[in-house]
Design a protein around this nucleic acid. Structure first.
Lengths: 230, 230
DNA sequence: TATAATTGATAGTATTGCTATTATAAGTGA
DNA sequence: TCACTTATAATAGCAATACTATCAATTATA
């Protein structure tokens, strides 16, 4: 627990706060590793319990079901990226430079120093890339949205949108660009790894530079006056 | 079956070709309606069989499992959008106008005349928006990609990328822009409906005009010379 | 030291995801 | 027309999943 960051997440996501107890922390740690390993569909609480030498019933005391656990993990990631952006853009005046850092953090969230011992941020990043959007693509999205389950994402998007508006106050789609940059970062890493004909960038191993350059290119093209602009 | 279009889909997606028999067509029709209604997670073959007055075992003779059925439906959609683009851009020389039509088809696929009686294209479009990306966000993606399960998407993206390159042969990311426009169309309709703070557009009922305008704006900004371009 | 709270161990239930078996109906080919 | 294949229905069954309940063992707390 190097730095004193406290990830604040909606307390309706869990039955008992997993950050507070060793067992809860084990659930977080091992669910990240296991979902990454076998995929969210094959993942369940029985397998998780076995992996961490606990019991199914114990896991159910922390989370109602695996879907809420996923939202918890995804929210964690959104919060963590927000936090990275905050510390890395602190004291930087120029909004253009701030946006560049934001893009870097979208693409390279995993490369930052881990801040909490029971969360492997690098694996979590892989998990978000592969499974992240499943958190809000469900029939319960409206209800869960009312309960504030996605507020961390909204806060992150608003933070980025503010920088976009600072760069170009005339730009009509600051939030859409912000969410699109985030989704694009994840999508095109995934495409490059699994469906390369859907993108033009390549990634190898831990090097996502081309994705970063592409998103910068998109952002620059959109935020500086263009003939096509209406 | 108004027009003589034959949707050609990878025959490894099914055990028996559902297009060939009345029961197969019933499976397609009702799976679209039922997934749209209850969501992909809650959907299963037992419920589908009950809904269409058949039996679980009969459905299993056509599709191995619900995941392959989803890929089948998503592939159908990709093929159908490809087809719409083909007929709607036929005889149009100007690539800018062709791209505009492509964007319109991405956003308004549902508004076109239905072409096959057992596929409700409007409901299918909703299904794609809500569940589409689950087709390729699984642990089996590489294997399924090797089997050609996503080739319809690749073909569609390549078709659009070609138009992009015609407009601006210097543009370095034609495929990424193509796939991004497609995903963005679906995403921002979904956001506007369920998570409006993640976008800047609004949609009401069947009117997605703002999404269309936004994607045109993005495409124009990117494809015409900008100071930010490297 | 009494008490409360947490976890483990075990069992149990309803549903899901699928396979197998047999019966019936419908079409086909000689 | 009869044998013959094929598709579907009806039913059963099984292993896995998604939980819930109970109670004992342990640990923390007052």
């Amino acid at each position: 627990m190097a730095i004193g960051i406290k990830i604040s997440l909606n307390d309706r996501l869990y039955l008992r706060d997993p950050q507070e107890t060793p067992l809860g922390q084990k659930i977080i740690r091992h669910s990240i590793l296991l979902i990454d390993e076998i995929g969210f569909e094959a993942f369940n609480f029985k397998k998780l319990a076995k992996r961490m030498n606990s019991t199914e019933a114990s896991v159910y005391r922390y989370f109602e079901n695996k879907h809420l656990l996923l939202i918890y993990l995804v929210s964690w990631y959104w919060e963590w990226v927000s936090y990275l952006i905050d510390i890395n853009t602190m004291n930087i005046e120029d909004p253009e430079r701030r946006l560049k850092i934001i893009i870097e953090n979208f693409v390279y969230a995993s490369k930052e120093n881990p801040s909490i011992e029971y969360v492997n941020e690098s694996v979590l990043h892989r998990l978000i890339i592969a499974e992240g959007t499943k958190a809000y693509h469900t029939k319960m999205v409206d209800e869960e949205n009312r309960d504030g389950f996605f507020s961390n994402y909204k806060t992150l998007v608003q933070k980025v949108a503010n920088v976009i508006s600072e760069i170009n106050s005339e730009f009509p789609y600051p939030r859409a660009l912000a969410s699109n940059m985030f989704e694009m970062a994840n999508n095109h890493i995934y495409f490059a790894q699994h469906l390369p004909r859907l993108t033009d960038v390549t990634v190898n191993d831990e090097n996502f530079d081309e994705v970063e350059v592409m998103i910068e290119f998109f952002a620059n093209a959109l935020l500086h006056n263009c003939p096509g602009k209406e």
